[in-house]
């Protein structure tokens, strides 16, 4: 099973990275979303194969059975799924707001929106001490 999972992870990560490198924020959102699934499957693989060496499956992680599946990856994934949900909601809202404010979801166009610029205030410098003379001091 681990092998199958590893192949799934490979495909999912490849597709999601491919999507994340595209120009459309919508595709990027889908890529991020898919990457979450891929990461969850990768964590799931850490619990080892559920197929026992002599055939048959392990039991769910509820006390009372024999050969329980490792519960820890499941707890981690459960957390991850819910966080994924929150991130997705946030991301999608961000998309809406971005589209409204800029009229585009193209990351290349967005990059050109507000280039970081040096502030003229910071670039200026204090005058040398001679400035002390020219200034009419209040005291």
């Amino acid at each position: 099973m681990t092998t199958v999972l590893a192949i799934c992870v490979t495909v999912m990560v490849t597709v999601s990275v491919y999507l994340m490198l595209s120009r459309e924020l919508k595709s990027i959102a889908m890529g991020v979303f898919l990457l979450g699934h891929g990461a969850n499957l990768a964590i799931l693989a850490m619990s080892g194969s559920p197929v026992l060496p002599w055939g048959g499956l392990r039991q769910p992680p509820i006390l009372g059975g024999e050969h329980l599946v490792d519960a820890l990856p499941q707890a981690l994934i459960l957390t991850a799924i819910v966080i994924n949900f929150a991130v997705m909601g946030f991301f999608l809202t961000l998309l809406i707001v971005t589209a409204r404010k800029t009229g585009t979801l193209n990351v290349d166009e967005l990059a050109g929106e507000e280039p970081p610029r040096s502030s003229p205030e910071l670039a200026s410098e204090p005058a040398p001490v001679a400035g002390l003379e020219t200034r009419s001091v209040a005291d």
Binding site: V82, A86, G89
Partner: peptide, 16 residues
Amino acid sequence: VVVGVAVGMITRLGEE
């Protein structure tokens, strides 16, 4: 909390 967050997000986006 989960109900509040999920319902809140969906209704908010639905209202839009």
